[in-house]
């Protein structure tokens, strides 16, 4: 990233991006993850077109129907139906919308608020810094899922509240990363030069320093995207996330619990959906880390 401090015109920026892509491309897992993710986005966007049935329509004459390849399965319900006769494949397809939505909202909120707090803490230091960082320490003292559960108990169980709770729980990582990056940038000469030439504090924070702190933040964003999906599914599983009949994958698992021995497929498929999605995003995250910042260790 040595050339970031140069004058980055449109051409160099394009070259930077190409350089990044060349590096990213060498990681086969990351590319596979990216394709999977793109496919998932397409499925989510096209859900109303490709889903064979509605997500909430109950086919009363086809309860707990097994998938097509087992005995008694039919092509009308390829992955079978659940206990009230809803088509599993359609619910999974619509469920992708929720998972991606959760990831996008949680990461955006945590990223924006975290960057602002981290910039303020790293730029001004002193008591502002101390206050912000102590609050973050308090959040980190609780196990994330427990704190999210308690926050949802305060706010009331719903998907939106679960997302707010998860965003709050993930906040400290962004604040710490931004603050650390800002502090190391602040001592560099280009910042000094900008200060001497009379750049205002806000411009210094957001335009001069922030772009050079982005690499670890982008990696963290990818990793916390997958954590957000996992945590939201866990909350849904515990009955504190999205509420039935929402086809959220974790909530679907919770509803299927009593049938695990009678109808294992309604337990299996939502879990595979969660696992593959999270896996794909983690693969992308690993690839981003290797391509953006070779100094960051694999952890």
């Amino acid at each position: 990233m040595a050339d970031v401090t140069h004058d980055t015109g449109p051409d160099t920026r394009f070259e930077l991006l190409m350089g990044f892509w060349r590096h990213f491309k060498t990681n086969r897992g990351a590319v596979f993850g990216l394709w999977f993710f793109v496919a998932l986005v397409l499925i989510a966007v096209l859900a109303p077109v490709i889903a064979p049935h509605s997500a909430t329509m109950q086919y009363r004459d086809a309860l707990l129907l097994p998938p097509v390849w087992s005995e008694g399965g039919t092509w009308t319900h390829i992955l079978g139906t659940d206990a009230v006769g809803r088509d599993l494949l359609s619910r999974l397809i619509y469920g992708s919308q929720f998972s991606l939505f959760i990831g996008v909202v949680v990461v955006s909120v945590a990223l924006v608020v975290g960057i602002c707090l981290g910039l303020v803490a790293g730029t001004f230091r002193g008591w502002v810094d101390t206050c912000i960082m102590r609050v973050m320490d308090v959040i980190l003292s609780f196990p994330s899922l427990l704190l999210a559960l308690v926050l949802v108990a305060i706010l009331g169980p719903s998907l939106i509240n679960a997302m707010i709770a998860i965003a709050i729980v993930q906040q400290p990582y962004y604040v710490r990363l931004t603050r650390a990056a800002v502090m190391s940038e602040m001592s560099k000469e280009y910042v000094m030069a900008a200060k001497v030439s009379g750049v205002g504090t806000l411009r210094l924070m957001f335009v001069t320093v922030l772009p050079n702190c982005m690499a670890p933040l982008i990696v963290q964003a990818a990793l916390s995207f997958s954590t957000a999906i996992l945590d939201a599914a866990a909350l849904g599983f515990l009955g504190m996330g999205a509420q039935p009949p929402t086809p959220e994958w974790g909530t679907m698992l919770a509803e299927s619990r009593e049938f695990i021995l009678r109808a294992p497929w309604i337990v299996t498929f939502p879990g595979i959906a969660i696992l593959t999605t999270v896996l794909a995003i983690n693969l992308i995250g690993d690839g981003l880390r290797d391509a953006l910042d070779p100094k960051l260790k694999k952890g």
């Binding site: 996992l230 974790g250 939502p270 879990g271 696992l275």
Partner: peptide
């Protein structure tokens, strides 16, 4: 390891 790291453990337990 990456699969394990991405595992929704509540589902893993049910499996």
């Amino acid at each position: 390891a990456l699969v394990g790291y991405s595992m929704p453990i509540f589902w893993w337990g049910l499996l």
